[in-house]
Design a protein around this nucleic acid. Structure first.
Lengths: 200, 200
DNA sequence: GGAGCAAGACGGCTCGTCCCGTCCTGCTCC
DNA sequence: GGAGCAGGACGGGACGAGCCGTCTTGCTCC
């Protein structure tokens, strides 16, 4: 009852893997996700379709890996956020950076594609959270906790709620394109959220 | 340069239209959106495919209409929100109701399907905002403005920002399924956001 | 020679168009 | 004003194109 046959990952072609992930990202940016086909990815990568299906179960999984390969080219899951001691300044920096990332098509398009898949695939969503979301989330929470200890945030503040209030509006505005996603908007969010959790 | 030929809407079969919209909703709930095909919708509705393509350009447009038909069975775009004079209580009521809606599969599944389409179709997204989002948004803003005049909200509060802070976290948690979407969460959001925009 | 590889043939499914014969509606002509 | 007619929407379904996921073939590298 085990998986039919697991391929030998030691013999896997790193060249093909990279080519597939790059081709996936490129095609998503060039054509838009709905028009990207598995066949096109394989052709662009100079790879047989079987190679693709041997290592990934679904197109969504390929997209996820193509983004993971992009976001952590060096270190292994190590995520650090700026900590100058000034919470408001640091949050502005980080949130503005997030806004800037979402404005870059090479970054934005693949993540949009991933979200398209994640919405209807709880399993893929869990994989995403585990491999990308959780570490980043943890780093953000750590930064907030430090600020909390430094008395820059209410002692009883729910840090997950703070993060939701900061990031969910940015995420929504980006995903639905229902308003300008500007540095000013990021600043306004930081100001409002900090006002809500000002220490007593 | 006009549209090739617009069908005569006076001769449109209301029976077929309703059957298509119902079948769409049913199949999305039963099968999950990715498994719903145009052919299945037509078959379930007892309708030729051409009838479907005659009146809707894309599957996404059908989904949008199927939701519109659901949410406004009676009045025409009239949206009203509770106004007891107590902003915090009213917001709790409305946000808890939103949370409850998202817990109902018959409501949740079609909207999730619509979001799947909207993400990659700016045109459809605009249509959605115009026909459903804008009126609701307006009603919410009106309620907040009343509260502002009553001195329950800071005079200089950006009402769109307030709405984003209230609803974006709910939306995100629902769409990504990355946390429990409970009445308590709704209450916590209301508390935090009102704290941020407390009048001076 | 065993396994991964590129290349691509293949069956099955879906899409969107096209065509058929039927039915309904409104107009014309006696 | 009643019969005939034209137009168009209808249910049903055939059709080609394109994509998916599997399978086959020969090559290459360990």
């Amino acid at each position: 009852m085990s998986t039919p046959k697991a391929p030998d990952s030691r013999r896997r072609s790193e060249r093909s893997r990279q080519a597939i992930l790059s081709a996936t990202r490129e095609l998503i940016v060039e054509l838009g996700y709905p028009r990207v086909t598995v066949e096109a990815i394989a052709a662009r990568a100079g790879v047989g379709k079987q190679t693709l299906y041997r290592w990934w179960p679904t197109k969504g999984a390929v997209v996820l890996d193509s983004i993971l390969a992009l976001s952590s080219p060096d270190a292994e899951g190590q995520v650090t956020l700026p900590d100058t001691g000034d919470l408001e300044a640091d949050l502005r920096t980080v949130l503005r950076a997030t806004v800037a990332e979402f404005a870059d098509p090479a970054f934005e398009a693949p993540i949009r594609a991933l979200n398209t898949e994640i919405i209807n695939d709880a399993e893929l969503a869990a994989a995403y959270r585990e491999r990308l979301g959780a570490p980043v989330e943890q780093a953000k929470r750590d930064r907030l906790r430090a600020a909390q200890r430094a008395g820059q945030l209410a002692a009883d503040a729910d840090l997950d709620l703070v993060l939701d209030l900061l990031y969910a509006p940015v995420y929504r505005r980006w995903l639905l394109r229902d308003g300008p996603l500007t540095p000013e908007y990021a600043d306004a969010l930081v100001t409002a959220v900090l006002a809500a959790f000002r220490p007593a």
